[in-house]
């Protein structure tokens, strides 16, 4: 204890103390932070409209209404959840399959995460919503097979139609008022296709009349290609371009130069 007290004026003491404080804060937060409630209901794997309706009533109706007609919050024109007739099976498969729905609370945008339901349960809910009114269906395996697409053409389409929000390398980006375009790296082709065809949340709809199904497959092929390509330079710094690269150069490049200057100027013992 004495030796510790004697070293409290050591130049590294404040840095070590800061690191220790940050580490402790993080550790305490990890223990105390609220966990997501687990609302999974273990249901039979029967894929039926009735099964889907039961799941919908149990998990979605509080916001979307008993008959998926949507519900208002009573505060101006704000809604608790939109009407779901006509959104199609693709929208359900995307929103629930990427963990965006059910939403854990009111927020500007539903974040993706671990899906809360098994695939047969999602299929049942999709079948129920699709039975209300016609809408986009879940795409076939062939429609989303990256091997069948043309990655070069997909890249051209991606840069015109998608890159302004999602970044040329699919790293995502900011929108207005806390909303954001999520990163779309390592996302399954099925979910990419469904997002284009249904336009989840802030994203516009890219219907088959806008981007043909072949063009959509080309885009999936492009995204798969950049997921798999090698990075000869190592750390890509999030593929975010000059902001992260500049910050890296300022912090580490200048930091090393400053450290060298301090060492050069210090007197030798």
């Amino acid at each position: 204890m004495n030796s510790l007290a004697a070293r409290r004026r050591h130049p590294a003491a404040i840095a070590i103390l800061l690191m220790l404080g940050l580490f402790l804060t993080g550790a305490v937060y990890a223990v105390v932070a609220p966990k997501d409630a687990d609302a999974t209901t273990q249901a039979l794997p029967a894929q039926s409209i009735e099964e889907g309706r039961q799941l919908f009533l149990a998990n979605c109706a509080s916001c979307h209404g008993q008959n998926a007609e949507g519900r208002a919050t009573g505060h101006g024109d704000r809604i608790a959840g939109p009407a779901l007739a006509g959104v199609g099976a693709a929208a359900v498969d995307f929103q629930v399959g990427t963990g965006r729905m059910p939403l854990s609370g009111p927020m500007v945008q539903a974040p993706g995460g671990q899906p809360k339901f098994s695939q047969p349960q999602i299929d049942s809910m999709a079948a129920y919503i699709a039975s209300l009114a016609p809408g986009p269906a879940v795409p076939s395996e062939e429609a989303v097979d990256p091997a069948l697409g043309n990655a070069a053409k997909g890249g051209e389409l991606f840069r015109v139609n998608c890159a302004m929000c999602h970044n040329a390398a699919g790293a995502g980006g900011a929108l207005t008022r806390g909303k954001y375009a999520p990163a779309i790296r390592d996302i399954s082709g099925r979910h990419i296709y469904q997002a284009m065809v249904t336009g989840p949340q802030s994203m516009p709809v890219f219907s088959d009349a806008n981007l043909s199904p072949e063009s959509k497959r080309d885009i999936i092929s492009y995204l798969t290609t950049i997921d798999q390509q090698e990075k000869p330079g190592g750390m890509a710094l999030g593929s975010l371009g000059p902001v992260t690269e500049g910050l890296f150069a300022w912090v580490f490049g200048l930091g090393i130069l400053v450290a060298c200057a301090v060492w050069l100027g210090s007197k030798s013992a």
Binding site: G199, V205, F206, S207, A209, N210
Partner: peptide
């Protein structure tokens, strides 16, 4: 852009860009 094909009014659904 870039397909260079004309657009019918009926192709432009609500929410499209």
């Amino acid at each position: 852009d870039p397909e260079n094909t004309p657009i019918k009014a009926e192709d432009v659904t609500i929410g499209s860009v």
